[in-house]
Each structure stands twice: as C-alpha cells, then as structure tokens.
Amino acid sequence: MGKQSWGILLLCALLVITAGCGTAGNQGGGNGEEGFSAGLVTDTGGLNDESFNQTAWEGMTRAKKELGADIKPLESKRDDDYIPNLTKFAREKRDIIWGIGFKFNKAIPDVAKQFPDQKFGIVDDSLGGNIPENVVAVTFKEEEGSFLMGVIAGSMTQSDKVGFIGGITSPLIKKFESGFRAGVKAVNPDAKVTVAYAESFTDVAKGRSLAANMYNGGTDIIFHAAGGVGKGLFDEVKTRKKGKYWAIGVDMDQSGLAPDHTLSSMVKRVDVAVFDIMKDIKENDQFPGGKEVQLGLKEGGVGLAENTDKHVPEKVMKKVEDYKQQIIDGKIEVPSTEKELKDFKG
C-alpha cells in the first residue's frame, strides 16, 4: 500500500462526505390535509408488461382522476429491489402501498412489520393465510375466468387440440391451467390439451418457440398465462393463417397484439380491485386489513374481454354465458388445482 493508495482512499472518503452532506431536498411527497396518496411497486415485469402490473396501474390512474389521489409507481429491476422500494413509499407515509404480484409474498410482511402504521396491499397472494393487520391480500379466482376460456377453446377447435402456455410453475398459474382444462373437458371431452411452462414471465423468445411447437403439432388454439412470455405467443400466431390459428390472452384485453388472431382474453380486473380498496379507504375510511379479498366471476373480478364476440360466434357466446351463470350460481365448482381437476366430471 503506497502513498497512492492512501490518496485514493482519501479521495473516496471525501466523495462520501460531500455526497452525504448534500442536503436532503424534498423528503415529502406525502399527503396534504385532505389528499390521498398511493404508491405502487411493480414486480420485475415492469409497468408496461401488458399484464397485471399494467392493469394495476390503470386502477391507480383512475384513482388519480376520480379521487384526486397523488400516485407514484416504482419499477423493480431485481427481486432484491422489493424491500427498498416498498420502504421508500412507507417513509413517505403514503396512504396505501401496493406490491403487485405474488413475488412480494416475502417482502410485504417484512416491510409491514417495520411500518405498522402504514397500509399495504398485495395482489395475487394470500400470504399463506398469515396476513398482518395492516395488509390486505387481493386474490382472484383465475380458474373461473380460465374455465370460460376453456369453453371457448374447446368449442372452437377444429383439430381437437388446444394448448396452454404457463409462466413459472406455481400454485397461481396452476389455477389458470386447471380451470382452462376443466372448461375444455366440459364442452369437448375428446379434445387434448397440451401444456407447456416457460419457467419465466419475461422470456418472449421462449414463448414464441413454445407456441410455434404447439401450432406445428396441430394445436389451433392456445391460451397463455405467462405475463411477458405471452407476447411471444402473439408474435407467432400473427405469422399464421387467419381464421385457423388463434391465441387467447390473459390479465387484460390483449387483442391489440394480434387483432385478427385473438379470440378473447381472460381479463383480471386488478384495476377494479385496486381502485375499490382505495376508494373505500378514502371515502369510508374502511380498510379490510388482515383479510383476503377474493374476487371471482360473481364479483366481476375476472371475466371475458369485451370484444370477445368479434371472432367468437354467437352460438359459442351463448354457451359461455350459460356456463358463466352456472358458476355464479354455484352449480359448477371450478377446480383450482391439479388434484381437483382429476375429480372434475364436467
């Protein structure tokens, strides 16, 4: 260690000190007298994931418009970013802080414990039932919406082969798969469902190659529940013959990605859920802390994309409506796991 090294260390120390002394500018951003502020932390998918992060953000922008809320997003680049990002909002004392996606299931309880006076919300995970008092867990009955997609796919397939592309194998995505397969089975017991998992929510190329393999193997309709991976499915189906090959989207109306090849999308109204909870806090001062809020077909939490009738014939639409009513009435119990699927008679 020569003189030079000491020089470097000194320089470094100086840098740290000067930077540290820099005055902490605006720490606020918090809520004014009557104002309502909310923060949203995305998972690694980012804000424009054409999926639940994006829909959640739509709910936030609606809160800005209708409730005059002060809203701010933070995108996480790595799993390690969840805790610091949530903490940033908590320090600003925002009225509610959302963690979007089941990947937050370890970060939210940690941060909620450190900031017991802040309210938090997690979407897509019930935290294994141990929900802290200052956290609301929003989950959806994805299997119910997926069941209707299965009904459409099962009724419209020409080759009796339909496909499902999942993101990362997990109980959540299994809900989509089970519901979809049950729906196909209910209307078309002969149809074969090919299932593939990309083991990623971001790998577009993988999604495209999985879709290409399925279509080449004779499958004509593919439903995906794979976040960003699903973009690959739409890239692939666009290159194929119109009216023969179809894709079904997920989370939000994805028909914009391939207007002539999209049968429908299983929309998950994360926006409605996020907005409703914020509205309740702002206007009624009510917060379902420590509870799991479950939204299915009945609550309007999941459903069909509005433009589904564009490519789906009326006969099939009727069938879909019929099944939808049966599920709402509790006549059909849609399976949400592989085990329940085995016992499902259709």
Binding site: A19, G25, R91
Partner: peptide, 11 residues
C-alpha cells in the same frame, strides 16, 4: 445526478 448521489446517502 444530485438525486442519485444524495439519495444513496440520504438516510
């Protein structure tokens, strides 16, 4: 840049 360097040492 000011935001970057100060916030790395803010608190």
């Amino acid at each position: 840049y000011i935001a970057l360097f100060t916030s790395a040492f803010l608190m």
